[in-house]
């Protein structure tokens, strides 16, 4: 049956992409080529735009100062362009958010895939996904008006703008990313593996923990990296909640600044094109783009490894 499907599929591809003399057929195909090229051009556009302004930036600021400098003060004299404080703030929020989202995400994914059946599973999964569909500015509002005041009752020296409440709301935001990608991986583990474990007398929690989870490990890792990459790219919640004081410190109770919120801060201030401040947003953008791109490529590698094994 599989062989027949393949032959049919091959025959179909031949007839779909066969040369045709009809004008309308060619116009149709031409439109499809043009549309597809847009996504390729977008990627090229992002890289060209970021790189061209970054090259101008590095004519004035040395690589060494940018990558090893410990002060980021591009908007006030004396200007310093060391990216480390922004990277530090970004990682603080990203790691903090993952500390919340990874345990919650993976536990609910394993629970939904192994313990819950039928329509309840679908309902719970899509309800959890509502968390990811809520606009990020709403999370920023909650961090400022709800999470921070509540936390201040327990932590008196918590600043009004702080990395902690930003990390909490970003963590809640990325729970669905981690849980739904993990859940897909757990559900894709072949039934034979589970049946074999049950046949040996394994109980549900043993099958879940010692068979399903290890088998889907690379899918789980992919979900964590995707969630982390989403957390470091998150913009509005951290801009509102985490403050705008770049600091090379890992204290979550203080106001910090992330790469994304620096970019927003500069663009709110109407900086003229061609200045070093204007170019700095492209350099920070390039750093952020590289970090998320590398994370996403690693995540794709992990999930491909998972698929090659089982699908």
């Amino acid at each position: 049956m599989k062989g027949l499907e393949n032959t049919q599929s091959f025959a179909l591809k031949r007839s779909l992409s066969s040369p045709s003399n009809s004008l309308s057929e060619n116009i149709f195909k031409g439109l499809l080529y043009v549309a597809t090229s847009v996504s390729v051009v977008t990627t090229i556009g992002i890289v060209v735009v970021l790189l061209s302004e970054a090259i101008q930036f590095f004519k004035e600021i040395s690589f060494v100062e940018f990558f090893t400098g410990t002060q980021w003060t591009p908007l006030i004299e004396p200007k310093h362009f060391g990216i480390l404080p922004l990277v530090c703030g970004t990682l603080l929020v990203g790691v903090g958010a993952s500390l919340i989202a990874v345990p919650v995400g993976v536990a609910s994914a394993l629970f939904l895939s192994e313990y819950v059946r039928g329509s309840l599973r679908t309902i719970l999964k899509s309800t959890l996904e509502v968390l990811a569909g809520i606009p990020t500015v709403v999370y920023g509002y909650l961090a400022i008006t709800f999470v921070t005041p509540q936390l201040q009752q327990f932590i008196p020296n918590l600043e009004v703008f702080n990395a902690l409440s930003a990390a909490i709301v970003v963590g809640i935001m990325i729970i669905p990313t981690i849980s739904s990608v993990s859940q897909d991986a757990f559900e894709a583990v072949p039934r034979e593996l589970r049946d074999a474990a049950y046949g040996l007398g394994g109980r549900k929690h043993q099958v879940a923990m010692t068979v399903v989870f290890p088998a889907a490990l690379s899918g789980f890792v992919a979900s964590v990296i995707l969630g982390f990459s989403r957390a470091i790219g998150e913009t509005m919640a951290v801009t509102l909640a985490a403050g705008s004081t770049p600091k090379l410190s890992f204290n979550p109770l203080q106001s910090i600044q992330t790469m994304t919120s620096y970019i927003v801060q500069v663009s709110l201030g109407d900086t003229p094109a061609g200045t070093i401040e204007y170019r700095s947003i492209f350099v920070v953008g390039l750093t952020l783009f590289s970090m998320t791109l590398i994370s996403n490529l690693i995540a794709q590698w992990f999930s491909r490894r998972f698929q090659e094994r089982y699908l």
Binding site: S39, G233, T235, I281, F289, Q300
Partner: peptide, 13 residues
């Protein structure tokens, strides 16, 4: 990969 690019980078573009 485009679907993983942070929205603020699209803003820069």
């Amino acid at each position: 990969n485009l679907s993983g690019v942070p929205s603020v980078v699209y803003g820069i573009l």
